[in-house]
Simulated assay, not measured.
Amino acid sequence: MDPRPDCGEESYRGSGRLAGKAAVITGGDSGIGRAVAIAYAREGADVLISYLDEHDDARDTARLVEEAGRRAVLVPGDLARPEHCREVIAKAAEAFGRIDVLVSNAAYQMTRDALEDVPDEEWDHTFQTNITAMFHLCKAALPHMGEGGSIIGSTSVNSDAPPPKLLAYNCTKAAIANFVGGLSQLLGPRGIRVNSVAPGPIWTPLIPATMPPEDVESFGGQVPLGRPGQPAELAPVYVLLASDEASYVSGARVAVTGGQPIL
């Protein structure tokens, strides 16, 4: 990508806010997930990086985690398959002995000009990857997550202001926000917090891979700050929500949108 997304490789400085924690991050090979993996490791957490098949990117992220002195576990595979979601969690539990933080971040989107252009399989795959996977991941993780645990979902400003050409993606992001709102209440008595982050236009590989060139060219220009955000600009929010400093924050939806409000 030109310019290359900034995932905090050169800028993020940790301060021990996640010392000793074990985290699972889906979609951790690039973009927002990569930035979160780097930040978590530099804050003291071991990290399992779940990804589809971008092996070079995933190995590079793992290298940065290990350079921070933390363990990195790589698990490739398709989260649209429930059995793979369970495998990701099982490998994290085996490697770390527990799960303190689960970041459900992996997502699929595709731009389509008309409803008739959306293949049935693509609609189903978008839901399976973006929201159904989160259900299976959370369900599998709970036996390994104790009081003080944190679950974080990546939603989107699109759930409140849906671009018409991203229908399936928009719906799944709204579903994540709703799922988090309900699950936070369900898990509150167990001392497990559930929150979501709602990014605005963030410069990640998903953008040029799924949008027409003219949309890529103007990407991010519509928000009040007048530019797309970088993945590194989201990482501190994911760190906060994973940390014990956010011990009374649950059921929240944190907007990181460059000034576009979510009300």
Rank of each mutant, 00 (worst) to 15 (best):
S156V: 13
M110H: 15
I99N: 02
P224S: 11
A62N: 03
A175C: 13
D78Q: 07
A114S: 15
R193M: 08
S11F: 06
A39R: 02
L137M: 15
G8E: 05
P208F: 08
G16W: 12
K21L: 14
I131V: 15
I32S: 06
D120G: 06
S196G: 14
R4T: 14
T26M: 06
I207C: 04
A235L: 07
D57R: 10
E233S: 08
H136I: 04
E121I: 07
V254W: 09
V197H: 06
S30P: 00
A235G: 06
N105P: 09
A198V: 11
A242E: 02
I202M: 08
Q260A: 14
P82H: 08
T126L: 03
L167M: 14
D244S: 12
A90I: 01
V24S: 00
R112P: 02
T126W: 01
V216G: 13
S150Q: 08
D6Q: 12
L64T: 01
E233Q: 14
P163W: 07
E245D: 15
L48F: 10
D53W: 09
G27C: 03
C85F: 05
H55P: 01
A175G: 15
L187D: 13
S50F: 01
Q128A: 15
E10F: 05
D120S: 12
D29G: 15
G8K: 02
G149Y: 04
P231K: 01
G226N: 13
L166C: 10
I32W: 07
D100K: 03
T257R: 05
L64P: 00
L241H: 04
G69A: 10
A90S: 14
P208V: 08
F127V: 03
A175R: 08
G146W: 09
A209V: 04
D120M: 07
W203C: 04
G153F: 10
T126Y: 02
S196Y: 06
S159P: 02
A161C: 09
H84P: 06
E67N: 11
K173F: 12
R34A: 05
S30I: 00
L137G: 03
G200L: 02
E94L: 12
P143A: 08
L137A: 09
Y169N: 11
G149D: 07
A140I: 01
E43Y: 07
S184T: 10
G229W: 03
R253Y: 05
I38W: 01
G8A: 05
L79A: 04
A242Q: 01
Q128S: 13
D244M: 03
G20L: 07
H84Y: 14
R227I: 07
G191P: 07
Y12F: 15
G33W: 01
M145L: 12
L234F: 11
F96G: 00
M110R: 15
A80D: 01
G31D: 08
N195I: 06
G191L: 12
V216I: 15
S50W: 02
I32R: 06
H136G: 04
D160P: 00
D53L: 08
Y12A: 00
H84S: 10
G200D: 04
R13G: 06
